[in-house]
Amino acid sequence: MKKTYILGVIAIAAAIVIILNGAKDVSTYATFADAAKIEGSVKVTGELNLDEEIIFKPEIDPNVFTFHMIDSDGVSRKVVMNKPKPQDFERSESVVVTGEMRNNEFVANEILMKCPSKYKDDEIRIRAEL
């Protein structure tokens, strides 16, 4: 058999293994309800619930801050984040948290926020008018 074919077969086999294996690392964005059912880490996407307080007391523990988030089902849950509060967190439009559900609280260890960009912001900011 030609070596090129052998290489081809190996490559295809490797590709299949990689696709099957890699597919396990992928999931849809979960809701809090999904997260409660799933063992292990999931990503939940949603919006910041601004009616509830965002608590970050760096003088007590800079590693924890809590907020409430509304997931895509419209359910609001408390999120406990194990990191200092990021800059401009209050302004973020949508939030993606990675972690797991524990006793009705979502314990997260990673967060990604999407902030309103200055290009989208058609308001013209003029200092003299302030």
Partner: peptide, 16 residues
Amino acid sequence: FEGTVIKDPIPHFNKF
């Protein structure tokens, strides 16, 4: 369709 996402990118890329 909701869209999918890699749960934990760093180990995902590293293992290959």
